[in-house]
């Protein structure tokens, strides 16, 4: 038994090294003086300076953040509606359709989602003249569509495990369904909504393939700029960008864990 658990510990340590070694090397070489990403040439923060002087990256980052905030918010609204309808409305005519449409985007390859949405936008532009041209609006629509599926899954599992007696009590006291939804259900599932928003925000910020298909001239997101730079070869300023993103994420996770602990204690 002892030997089995020693094996497990060693295996786990190796597993975590596998997960974190590339990330650590990104951080270390972001402080590298040399232009060669993998040869150490002394400590320097010059790539950070370079990053903040690159108007292309700054513009793309701003586009990405706007897209992610709007998409995540809309995806939470639509995804919560879908989850609520599926867990609370019993039988209705389009139920099977909605169930399928909520789960399918989760396993749909990005290239197919991207291509199909682009062709839809082109066809709509021809037929009704909207959306005229492509850009941020079309990226947002695409991101809302695939993010809402993820939100729906998160919210659905929360709603399913929720004690319904609170909602029933409010109904018994004469509250109308809309009021019960906004006064009872929403506050109770708020942690799931926040988790869903963060998930949608991350997915939107991370998406390269779908955005590349549905975008138009002038609207380049951050992953699109990173991709074109990385494809051309090494660029140490991308390491600096990665380090900043990792720092923000780590900070966010720390704050979230701390908040969770505090709310559990109270």
């Amino acid at each position: 038994m002892m030997r089995a658990s020693t094996f497990l510990v060693i295996f786990c340590v190796l597993g975590f090294i596998f997960l974190y070694a590339p990330i650590l090397s990104l951080i270390i070489f972001s402080f590298n003086e040399s232009k060669l990403v993998t040869v150490w040439g002394g400590f320097s923060t010059k790539w950070y300076g370079e990053l903040f002087r690159d108007p292309q990256i700054l513009r793309a980052a701003w586009v990405s953040i706007q897209v992610a905030v709007v998409s995540a918010t809309a995806a939470v609204v639509l995804g919560t509606l879908a989850a609520y309808v599926l867990t609370r409305f019993g039988r209705f005519r389009t139920r099977a359709l909605l169930t399928g449409m909520v789960t399918a985007p989760l396993v749909m390859p990005d290239v197919i989602t991207g291509l199909s949405l682009l062709l839809l936008f082109v066809a709509m532009d021809q037929l009704i003249g909207w959306p005229a041209g492509r850009g941020m609006t079309t990226i947002i629509i695409a991101h809302v569509t695939f993010c809402m599926a993820y939100v729906a899954v998160v919210v659905q599992s929360r709603l399913a495990s929720l004690d319904r007696s609170l909602e029933e009590a409010a109904m018994d006291l004469g509250a109308r369904p809309v009021r019960v939804f906004f006064d009872i259900t929403i506050p109770v599932i708020a942690p799931a909504l926040i988790a869903g928003w963060l998930l949608a925000f991350t997915l939107s910020l991370d998406d390269l393939v779908i955005a590349s298909f549905v975008t138009g001239p002038g609207a380049s997101t951050l992953p699109m700029v990173i991709f074109s730079k990385v494809r051309l070869g090494v660029s140490p300023d991308i390491n600096a960008l990665a380090t900043i993103i990792i720092a923000i994420v780590a900070l966010g996770v720390l704050v979230a864990t701390w908040q969770l602990k505090r709310s559990r204690r109270s």
């Binding site: 975590f16 990104l26 990173i226 993103i245 994420v249």
Partner: peptide, 30 residues
């Protein structure tokens, strides 16, 4: 949390990190 943390950072950048690891003058070869 440690398992999920990489998932929250950019997928593209993690693939890029492997480029730096695997290239002929990369970390592993060095």
């Amino acid at each position: 949390t440690l398992v999920m943390l990489p998932f929250w950072t950019s997928f593209l950048l993690r693939v890029y990190a492997w480029q730096g690891f695997l290239r002929s003058n990369g970390v592993i070869n060095n």
